[in-house]
């Protein structure tokens, strides 16, 4: 309990610090934007990886592609079709979510390392799609004059508003994920991660849950995609290439693929489902003292077939 409170205090302190960074001038404008804002939007992209890995047991290498779909659609609609910013932004996010759902449906029965490969392939397809189809991008990419006024318009010269926008959205994403993992959907998802066979026999539609979870991940990633366009005022296929995919994954891994989830979900999971999923594995590969369930969740798909 005390540890939890210390954690909460620490989190609150960090949040206050982040809010106060611009007025205190502790960072130069460059660092505020290139370190602060960049970390925030990459963090949102990584959060979608972590959400899927921690709660669905799905390690995705396709999140960069999905935020690319959002970013490209937004930029295309503004630059090539001449839409206003806000309709284009929502259309971009909507497209990314629909795309995520489609990928989720294709991958609904694919688990573990195969899921990793499939999403990697999706990432490469999206990259080549935007590289090759000149009508939507081509290698040159798309350049915007400015972002919406709400986030500061010319975000390169005036980065402070975008920083706050990214900060607020990061906080919202965090709260949203915390909320979602406590809903029946979130709990069912964790159950599926740990023992899909049991969940299926309990009457849950395992595959649909996976697909929907992936769409939710896509929704989170699409926010990052829009922010990245605000941030760079351009997007090109190199924004979503394999290096970028690895960067997003690396952020998620360094942060802990199974870490960013609410304490309550850990508790609810810890008592019931996890020992089940560990038992088969720990019997084979020896004991794992004190490691709880974190390390087995990612390798559990071995039993998933």
């Amino acid at each position: 309990m005390t540890v939890a409170w210390i954690n909460r205090g620490l989190a609150a302190a960090i949040l206050v610090f982040l809010v106060l960074v611009p007025p205190l001038h502790v960072l130069s404008e460059f660092n505020l934007s290139q370190v602060g804002t960049r970390s925030l939007w990459l963090g949102i992209a990584a959060a979608s990886v972590v959400f899927l890995a921690a709660n669905g047991g799905m390690v995705s290498l396709g999140q960069a592609a999905i935020y690319g779909v959002a970013g490209f659609t937004y930029a295309d609609l503004v630059v090539k079709v001449g839409w206003g910013h806000w309709p284009a932004i929502f259309a971009g996010m909507g497209t990314a979510i629909a795309f995520g759902l489609a990928v989720g449906l294709v991958a609904r029965r694919t688990t573990g390392i195969y899921f990793l490969m499939l999403t990697l392939a999706v990432g490469v397809i999206v990259y080549y799609f935007y590289l090759q189809v000149e009508q939507v991008s081509g290698q040159t990419g798309l350049h915007l004059d400015r972002a919406p006024a709400l986030v500061g318009g010319d975000t390169i010269s005036h980065p402070t508003r975008l920083y706050y926008a990214a900060l607020i959205l990061s906080a919202l994403v965090y709260v949203f994920i915390r909320y979602l993992v406590r809903t029946p959907f979130g709990i069912a998802l964790q159950g599926i991660r740990d023992d899909p066979v049991r969940m299926a026999s309990l009457g849950y539609n395992v595959e649909l849950h996976r697909a929907v979870a992936f769409a939710v991940g896509a929704a989170i990633a699409s926010i990052a995609g829009i922010l990245s366009v605000f941030f760079n005022l351009q997007i090109s296929p190199s924004s979503i290439d394999i290096n970028q995919t690895i960067i997003v994954l690396a952020i998620a891994v360094v942060g802990g693929l199974t870490r960013l989830r609410s304490s309550s979900s850990t508790r609810s999971r810890g008592r019931h489902t996890c020992p089940e999923s560990c038992s088969g594995r720990s019997a084979r590969s020896g004991t794992r003292p004190g490691s709880g369930c974190c390390s087995c969740s990612s390798s559990s798909p071995r039993r998933a077939g």
Binding site: T140, G141, S236
Partner: peptide, 28 residues
Amino acid sequence: QPDNALKEARRLVEQVKVNILLGPLSGD
């Protein structure tokens, strides 16, 4: 890659505060 060039250019212009930026090398 344009993305990467932009990142480097922003570092040079906004952080190092160069007066003149000479570059880049490739088309896009």
